[in-house]
């Protein structure tokens, strides 16, 4: 049964995020991300003119789309959904030839190549969540703005937050069904 599979989502509160970049640094050390590369980044979006302005700050990363163009476009099957999940997109580095089709397909610019030649990106810290830990970016966030869990489980924190707060996703018009939500 498909519904028994987990649908992992990240819910990030833009009202709390201060854009400090602790998530970026924690991800880099946790996952040994090579120099000059980053799986997580911070976007600032300013609207209005002085002095009537507003700003949204977002910690961004791979959206672990339920309809992921990177998975569809991968010629070798290296990009795949992790077993037992609807949407946790992983890259099997041994099968990846570094053709970059996935990078071209991803509308979020979430992927990059590492010096060894294969493609890398956010895994929602798959190795940590397997053990019941939270992703490193969530664990470090000093504003506690990042939440993570299974939205197929109605009782999870993320499900509750999405029910009680207004949220959005990035580029939903692309039809990728992204699973990183921003509380606005």
């Amino acid at each position: 049964m498909k519904t028994e599979n987990k649908k992992y989502a990240m819910v990030i509160d833009t009202k709390l995020c201060v854009g400090c970049g602790a998530c970026v640094a924690a991800c880099k050390t946790e996952n040994n991300v090579p120099d000059g590369r980053s799986r997580v980044w911070v976007a600032e979006e300013v609207s209005g003119t002085f002095p009537d302005i507003s700003m949204e700050i977002r910690s961004e990363r791979c959206n672990h789309c339920s309809s992921a163009p990177c998975v569809d476009s991968c010629p070798t099957g290296a990009s795949h959904y992790k077993k037992g999940t609807v949407n946790l997109v992983m890259v099997n580095e041994n099968r990846c030839t570094g053709c970059k089709a996935c990078m071209a397909a991803c509308p979020y610019d979430a992927r990059f190549t590492v010096p060894e030649g294969y493609v890398s990106k956010c895994t929602f810290c798959s190795h940590r969540i397997e053990k019941g830990d939270s992703p490193a970016c969530m664990a470090v966030c000093p504003a506690k703005a990042i939440h993570f869990g299974d939205i197929n489980n109605r009782e999870s924190d993320v499900s509750r937050l999405l029910r009680s707060r207004k949220s959005k996703t990035l580029l939903p018009e692309n039809g990728t069904e992204p699973n990183v939500y921003y509380l606005v």
Binding site: G19, G21, V24, K28, N32, V33, P34, D35, G36, R37, S38, V40, W41, V42, A43, E44, E60, E93, T113, V114, P115, E116
Partner: peptide, 24 residues
Amino acid sequence: KIAGAGLGALAVSGGVGKVVYGLM
């Protein structure tokens, strides 16, 4: 404005970045 990795850092590092601790 995409911060995070920093546009400057991305621009200069193309493919030559070292592996941080030799562990991938």
